[in-house]
């Protein structure tokens, strides 16, 4: 096995641009979903559930929820792209095989795909931000600082998804990852409710996982406050991103070059 660190070069760019070109062709229906889904969530849960809940940690529930949903959406979007779409390009359409016959290497493809998954996270977060702003759940232009956090979240979950893709024998394999990793993260990372109420062990566990840290930064940014210790909170998803980037590269070298 070739465990050496990924080679970083600008050759990731054509990989990323190819995916962007496909997305632009098919983006019409996708954009409707990108706007429609958060709108439904925020209306139904923000107002519906929010009517019962009232304020959470001093915030109207819809404001609390909007910041959580942005992070969860960044995670889900990057995960889907890194699993189903990347697997399709790898194993079904053999798009990567074509790239590897050109002067691109596995390392270029992995980097291009990870940056693309993070780009998709941005594409999903921007409509949510607009919808949330329209519903009055965003305070000021400072909320745009959310976008770099979303991008880092996308890098983290996109890279993790590519590790799973590198190991997958079929699409069915991804169900395990969703059930065992993504859904629990979604539920215990402070997206829908604050973590103060859950058992201590779960709280500590959540601190070791990337999503809750993204939520910790995004929530104050959405409400016009400076986030506490942003560098520390960004470090966790960045560490996950870096480790998964390396692992995905090693595993895909083994899978595609053997």
């Amino acid at each position: 096995m070739n465990f050496s660190l990924p080679v970083i070069s600008v050759r990731w760019l054509p990989v990323w641009r190819r995916n962007l070109r496909v997305w632009r062709k098919l983006s019409g229906p996708a954009l409707i979903g990108n706007f429609g889904e958060p709108l439904l969530y925020l209306l139904a849960l923000g107002y519906g559930l929010g009517g019962f809940v009232g304020e959470v940690k001093g915030l109207p529930y819809i404001v609390f929820l909007a910041s959580g949903i942005i992070c969860a959406s960044a995670m889900n979007t990057a995960t889907f792209e890194g699993l189903y779409s990347a697997y399709t390009r790898m194993a079904v359409q053999n798009t990567w095989g074509g790239m590897l016959a050109a002067p691109l290497d596995i390392d270029d493809i992995v980097l291009g795909e990870i940056i693309w998954t993070a780009t998709k996270s941005l594409i999903s977060a921007i409509p949510i931000l607009i919808v949330a702003a329209a519903l009055g759940a965003v305070h000021g232009w400072g909320a745009l600082w959310v976008l770099p956090v979303v991008f880092v979240t996308g890098l983290c979950f996109g890279a993790m998804a590519l590790v799973i893709t590198a190991l997958a024998k079929s699409y069915d394999f991804f169900i395990y990852y969703f059930t065992l990793v993504i859904t629990p993260l979604f539920l215990v990372s402070g997206v829908f409710f604050p973590l103060e109420g859950v058992p201590q062990a779960v709280q500590i566990g959540a601190q070791l996982l990337p999503l809750s840290h993204a939520v910790e930064i995004v929530r104050p940014l959405m409400t016009g406050q400076a986030p506490p210790a942003p560098a520390l909170h960004l470090l966790v998803p960045l560490l996950y991103a870096g480790a998964a980037y390396w692992l995905a590269t090693v595993l895909l070298r083994r899978r595609l070059m053997s």
Binding site: P14, V22, Q93, N94, T95, G97, G98, M99, A101, L104
Partner: peptide, 23 residues
């Protein structure tokens, strides 16, 4: 290659332009 790996989402021209970008 033995198996076609043309990009099914693209036109003929887009396939050529995209592949050229890899070079």
């Amino acid at each position: 290659p033995q198996q076609d790996n043309l990009d099914p989402d693209f036109t003929v021209l887009e396939n050529l332009i995209t592949y050229a970008s890899y070079f």
